[in-house]
């Protein structure tokens, strides 16, 4: 039996505890221990971005993060995106993804949303080229990316400088 460890962190704005295997990924913790399934497993190697979450305000691949490393940190998953004061942008992103047709099978979408939201937090007026670079770690097999990029650009343009 693997070593277990207790951690205490904030998940989607709510403080909580969890007991996790020390070699477990944050992705497995979220999906299996906690039961939040919006964060997806796509490759387990940080190559596809389907498992993107935000920790202490930056996006990362939860499949590469040790669950124990969540201790003391602010973790936001797709289920909690926009629950805080930055919710206007998250809600604008959601609308833009719908309006621009950025979703087909949808499996990459939660990770794409988490990354897009992080990008716009960092670079509110990012242009199409930097957005393409910004989502280079998120694979999508359905859309050809164009409508995803369009959606993110539109939200960036919609924000007053």
């Amino acid at each position: 039996m693997s070593l277990m460890h207790d951690i205490d962190f904030t998940l989607n704005g709510v403080r909580r505890r969890a007991t996790v295997r020390v070699d477990m990924s944050a992705l497995d913790m979220l999906r299996e221990t906690i039961g939040l399934t919006g964060t997806k497993y796509g490759c387990g190697e940080g190559e596809c971005g389907a498992c993107t979450i935000q920790v202490d305000g930056v996006s990362l691949n939860s499949c590469l993060m040790f669950a124990v490393d969540c201790h003391g940190r602010q973790v936001v998953t797709i289920e909690g995106l926009g629950a805080d004061e930055a919710s206007t942008r998250a809600s604008a992103l959601r609308d833009a993804f719908v309006e621009h047709g950025a979703v087909q099978c949808g499996f990459c979408t939660p990770g794409m949303m988490m990354q897009a939201s992080h990008l716009l937090d960092r670079h509110p007026h990012a242009d199409a080229e930097s957005i393409k670079r910004g989502i280079e770690g998120n694979l999508c097999r359905c859309t050809g990316y164009k409508k995803i990029v369009d959606a993110i650009v539109a939200v960036g343009e919609g924000i007053a400088p």
Binding site: T37, G38, T39, T77, F97, V98, V103, G106, P110, M113
Partner: peptide, 17 residues
């Protein structure tokens, strides 16, 4: 717009996984 897009965008869609 795609009918199931909002569910997918919010991570609420339940895939087999």
């Amino acid at each position: 717009t795609k009918m199931d897009a909002p569910e997918k965008i919010e991570g609420k869609t339940r895939y087999i996984h």
